[in-house]
Amino acid sequence: MAAPVWRRLSRGRWWSAAPGRRAAHSGRQGFLAAQKSRGLFKEFFPERGTRVELSELFAAGGPPQTVYCGFDPTADSLHVGHLVTGEDVFGITVPLITSTTGAKLGKSAGNALWLNRDRTSPFELYQFFVRQQDDCVERYLKLFTFLPLPEIDHIMQLHTTEPEKRGAQKRLAAEVTKLVHGQEGLDSAKRCTHALYNSSIDALEVMSDEELKELFKEASFSELVLDPGTSVLDTCRKAKAIPDGPRGYRMITEGGVSINHRPVTNPECVLVVGQHILKNGLSLLKIGKRNFYIIKWLQL
């Protein structure tokens, strides 16, 4: 029978490896040893026995270990059943996850990356990991993916030869996004990336309303009726993207307006399906550098 092991996940929260609570997991390296080699453990306590008994639990070829998803020891819902875990109990702390600036990542810090798409979109999750600094990538690959350690070593070796391509960051972002949101979520994140950073018209044309709203969270969303002869000026005014009068007119003529990543400088230019209006019936209107307007055309 496997000896129980406690793991402290965060302040006041624990997991324990207790016999019979979860399916056993064993491998050539051993479950606990595999987690330790990936950097999931930081400290072990108490000092009593950790150099001998705990080492045996980490040894390859030892008895299979079981993992129990534990509880908050400060909760008022605890009962006597929670007092069961045996004599050989060892505390194991996990490392604090921090941002590139060293700040704590989490809900209490106000910078949490949520697993719920409504809170953090696949694109935002993907971009967070793509933007990670080189000195964080290997650690995050070990913590947040199931990639074998030899494969991670290979990824990092390739990265050192061409760091400017950010291959390790892209692989990290892809693995985490797929793990959280599935292949569809990863595809969505890549479409959004191409649409925003590569100015890809093809990517824009296959994006859904939901993806556009996720990508341009601050954008104004309008539904407009396309009439014969609708011009660039008409569109901008109906979407309330420019002021009335000469000033709004000049914003177009002076190059401050683009539709679907293409600059438009003729206010009287009539909208053309396939150029100003995408196959999915949408137009992405950009005013200046940061102001986006998503227009869904009706009665095409």
Score class of each variant (00 low, 15 high):
residue 66 T to K: 07
residue 37 S to I: 12
residue 35 Q to K: 08
residue 93 T to G: 09
residue 119 R to Q: 10
residue 73 P to Y: 09
residue 110 G to H: 02
residue 93 T to E: 05
residue 66 T to D: 09
residue 106 G to K: 03
residue 61 G to A: 03
residue 6 W to N: 03
residue 112 A to V: 07
residue 108 S to M: 02
residue 35 Q to D: 08
residue 44 F to P: 07
residue 84 V to A: 14
residue 35 Q to T: 06
residue 24 A to C: 10
residue 116 N to A: 14
residue 56 E to P: 06
residue 108 S to K: 14
residue 16 S to K: 03
residue 43 E to K: 15
residue 16 S to T: 01
residue 56 E to N: 08
residue 111 N to A: 13
residue 117 R to S: 15
residue 102 G to W: 04
residue 105 L to N: 04
residue 9 L to Q: 15
residue 26 S to Y: 02
residue 76 D to K: 12
residue 46 P to Q: 08
residue 62 G to W: 00
residue 111 N to Y: 03
residue 52 V to K: 00
residue 79 H to T: 11
residue 105 L to W: 02
residue 44 F to R: 06
residue 109 A to I: 09
residue 115 L to V: 10
residue 52 V to Q: 04
residue 42 K to W: 13
residue 26 S to N: 06
residue 103 A to C: 12
residue 56 E to I: 00
residue 43 E to L: 02
residue 89 V to F: 03
residue 71 F to N: 10
residue 75 A to S: 15
residue 61 G to D: 02
residue 114 W to L: 06
residue 27 G to N: 06
residue 41 F to S: 04
residue 70 G to F: 09
residue 63 P to W: 04
residue 82 H to L: 01
residue 113 L to P: 04
residue 94 V to A: 14
residue 68 Y to C: 11
residue 107 K to M: 14
residue 17 A to M: 11
residue 4 P to M: 03
residue 117 R to D: 12
residue 90 F to G: 05
residue 97 I to M: 13
residue 37 S to F: 11
residue 115 L to F: 13
residue 10 S to R: 15
residue 70 G to N: 09
residue 110 G to D: 06
residue 109 A to V: 05
residue 44 F to A: 09
residue 55 S to P: 07
residue 91 G to Q: 03
residue 44 F to I: 04
residue 50 T to Y: 05
residue 79 H to C: 09
residue 53 E to Y: 06
residue 26 S to K: 04
residue 18 A to G: 12
residue 39 G to W: 12
residue 45 F to S: 15
residue 79 H to I: 04
residue 75 A to Y: 02
residue 14 W to H: 11
residue 118 D to L: 12
residue 10 S to L: 05
residue 11 R to D: 14
